[in-house]
């Protein structure tokens, strides 16, 4: 059973057509990776699923329901979280306020919160600190923590390792592995090694079209395909 289905999804930004008939299915559970060169349309695909860009009608399905015309906030309330490339935190709010925003009733579930602390101990330490004062890695962790502070069915994560220190990336990897036990992740990533170690399935976007879909194992073993689609030597 797939959690997300894209059927001939087309997205225009202003006068430009960015995505051309993108189609793939994301299975429920695990990590689905979106790969592609810079400017291929990976972020636009995530934003289109989230309703941040208007897509062609009846092209995005979440658990079998057409969500292509829905408002972003409605999609979010259906259990879809989005962690954007620029982290998307609210710098003027404290860590606590940032996380509280993502709770349904403004209250934390204690066991869930302690699980989040376990994933990202710094958040407990910086609980009353304004998010703007956090380091890049801490901001990224806050952004991911906000997505998991309540159970979600799907999390869209855009380039989470960009500009982070190796120690933070390693721990981010462990966190994603843990989160993906209970939640489906769609991960956009440039770091192929990071994506490879987490992903089960993948789609490669090239010039606004789907160039490849399949299992990570099959893609990993085909060096010629990697070189052609990603420029990986």
């Amino acid at each position: 059973m797939s959690i997300v289905q894209l059927q001939d999804m087309t997205t225009n930004i202003g006068p430009y057509r960015i995505l051309h008939n993108v189609s793939f299915e994301v299975p429920t559970g695990g990590v689905f990776v979106l790969l592609g060169r810079n400017g291929a349309g990976k972020t636009t695909t995530l934003r289109s699923i989230m309703g941040l860009w208007q897509t062609s009608p009846k092209s995005v399905f979440f658990k079998g329901k057409d969500i292509s015309g829905l408002h972003t906030s409605e999609i979010a309330r259906m259990g879809v979280a989005y962690v954007p490339e620029n982290m998307g935190i609210f710098g003027g709010l404290t860590v606590e306020e940032n996380l509280r925003l993502a709770t349904t009733k403004g209250k934390f579930d204690k066991s869930r919160l302690s699980w989040v602390y376990q994933l990202f101990p710094a958040l407990e330490k910086f609980w009353h600190t304004k998010a703007a004062a956090l380091s890049g890695g801490q901001k990224q962790m806050l952004s991911v923590a906000r997505a998991v502070i309540e159970p979600r069915e799907l999390i869209l994560i855009d380039e989470p390792t960009k500009g982070l220190a190796p120690a933070i990336i390693a721990n981010m990897h462990d966190a994603f592995a843990e989160i993906s036990q209970t939640t489906t992740l769609i991960l956009v990533e440039q770091n192929f090694a990071f994506a490879r170690s987490l992903g089960n399935q993948l789609a490669v976007i090239d010039d606004g079209c789907v160039a490849y879909t399949g299992s990570m194992n099959a893609f990993e073993s085909d060096a010629e395909l990697q070189a052609r689609l990603l420029g990986v030597a």
């Binding site: 989230m50 941040l52 408002h71 906030s73 979010a76 998307g88 003027g92």
Partner: peptide
């Protein structure tokens, strides 16, 4: 305050 900072982000976490 979140809306003041970035309304798109506020919508992406479920606020109209």
């Amino acid at each position: 305050k979140a809306i003041r900072e970035n309304d798109t982000r506020a919508e992406a976490i479920g606020y109209r």
